[in-house]
Design a binder for these strands. Structure first.
Length: 428
RNA sequence: GGAGAGGUGGCAGAGCGGUUGAAUGCACCGGUCUUGAAAACCGGCGACGGUUGAUCCCGUCCGUGGGUUCGAAUCCCACCCUCUCCGCCA
């Protein structure tokens, strides 16, 4: 959520910045509503003040043994107008909140202009795409051919966009999770957390998935509705909700491994082949809460933490700065890490690292006590995948493939696989 | 699932329906004392919003939402959460 004071004080400026995203702010509607809000609120507070002071007078008059009936009649008379205006004020405030919840974050100044991903800016590349002296296959051919991956069975168990991993592939996934968690906890200073995979609507509103993007989520209806988490960002960032952290507890760094569930509504026909876009996938997520002045440096650092994983796995990648039009709803700046996939002959997103400024913190009421003012102030939050495990499997398969269909395991991962150097296809 | 207890400021914890936004303690901030620190003492210290150049001031907030009343932290109803005991159970 944006600062409501900024919305009141400089709405045109907000509209201008959001236009960079291709988002149109209904400036006139908001201003009209705001004027009415002010008018009604002033009158409501006036009436409340009258009621309070006159009610106190009743208490005093009664204590003094005076007749309080006339006073009671007077105060009752305020009741009707107050009740009506108060209801209107509540209504206006709810409308305002609904509007505010629907406004995306302001793009940071360093975010490039542009409407869609074609305008994203490549920042740097790491590693060389491998050269093959044979026609490289994609992960579906390799995985199914090796007897490690079964899409057909998954679709009979659940539906399309699910997968069954078998034998060494299931083990490889488990190894990757351990590998990533070990690096982030032991080398990068993150605390590992285990969190709920079902969350309530309030948590999703806090991080920005609700109210606008309900169609992207799996909902579990019941006496109380729950949602399957689309990313660990939701439960982990909500560790901060309604709290005030002491400054010596900052920065706060958490890492969590969770499954992620996405409905992928609206992406029909997109990436239907393979494990790139699934309803369920594993991810290791990094989350940080920092002092506002540290946010920018923290984004660079967090992105570097995710890059470390790719480097240790010897996977070639590039870093892309998302343009304003391609930014996620809550993000003010995002770097995507894109891994090279020989099967598709292109770079594909494997991690997304974002800085949210105080956008999430305001929704979450996530604060820290600034020692300089001794007042609670909003934190800045960040997160990034470190990495998406399913896509890491894809990348390892495609980049490590050999002419005979076996897969080379990068040395850094071997200790997690009992020293295994290659995945050998199951005998046909 | 059954029975009971409870949800109050950063934390702990008081609070006969009427000058209680809320005692007290801890923490925190400022000061006195001290070579320095600690201790002791003095003073300050909730959040959010409106208004303001900044104060003052005003309003709202005692789990959430309703209700009773001239007036609710305090009474009533519903819901949520926590704890204890019993049952069941990975």
């Amino acid at each position: 959520m944006l600062d409501p004071r900024l919305l009141r004080a400089d709405l045109d400026q907000v509209a201008q910045q959001l236009a960079r995203r291709g988002f149109t702010v209904k400036v006139q509607d908001i201003q009209t509503l705001e004027e009415r809000r002010k008018q009604v609120q002033v009158r409501v507070q006036e009436l409340q003040n009258l009621r309070n002071t006159r009610s106190k007078a009743i208490g005093q008059a009664r204590a003094a043994g005076q007749d309080i009936e006339p006073l009671k009649a007077e105060v009752s008379a305020y009741g009707e107008e107050l009740k009506q205006l108060d209801a209107e004020l509540t209504e206006i405030q709810e409308q305002m909140r609904a509007i505010a919840l629907g406004l995306p974050n302001l793009p940071a100044a360093s975010v490039p202009d542009g409407r869609d991903e074609s305008a994203n800016r490549e920042e740097r590349r790491w590693g060389e795409p491998p050269a093959f002296d044979f026609e490289p296959r994609d992960h579906v051919d390799l995985g199914v051919g090796g007897g490690w991956v079964d899409f057909d069975r998954a679709s009979t168990i659940a539906a399309a966009r699910f997968v069954v991993l078998k034998g060494p592939m299931a083990r490889l996934q488990r190894a990757l999770v351990q590998f990533m968690l070990d690096i982030h906890t032991q080398e990068h200073g993150y605390q590992e957390v285990y969190v709920p995979y079902l969350v309530n609507a309030t948590s999703l509103e806090g991080t920005g998935q609700l109210p606008k993007f309900e169609q992207d989520l799996f909902k579990i209806p019941g006496e109380r509705d729950f949602y399957l988490i689309p990313t660990a960002e939701v439960p982990v960032t909500n560790l901060l909700r309604d709290s005030i952290l002491e400054s010596d507890h900052l920065p706060q760094r958490w890492v969590a491994h969770t499954p992620c569930f996405r409905s992928e509504a609206g992406s029909h026909g997109k990436d239907t082949r393979g494990m790139i876009r699934q309803h369920q996938f594993e991810k290791v997520e990094l989350v940080q809460a920092v002092r506002p002045e540290d946010g920018q440096a923290a984004l660079e650092q967090l992105t570097g933490h995710a890059e470390t994983i790719l480097q240790r796995l010897e996977l070639p990648y590039r870093v892309v700065s998302l343009c304003a039009g391609d930014l996620g709803f809550s993000a003010s700046k995002t770097y995507d890490l894109e891994v090279w996939l020989p099967g598709q002959q292109c770079y594909r997103e494997i991690s997304s690292c974002s800085h949210f400024g105080d956008f999430q913190a305001r929704r979450l009421l996530a604060r820290w006590r600034n020692p300089e003012t001794n007042k609670p102030e909003l934190l800045h939050t960040l997160n990034g995948s470190g990495l998406a495990v399913g896509r890491t499997l894809v990348a390892l398969l495609e980049n490590g493939q050999q002419a005979d269909g076996s897969i080379r395991i990068p040395p850094a991962l071997r200790p997690y696989l009992g020293g295994l150097e290659r995945l050998e296809p199951a005998a046909a």
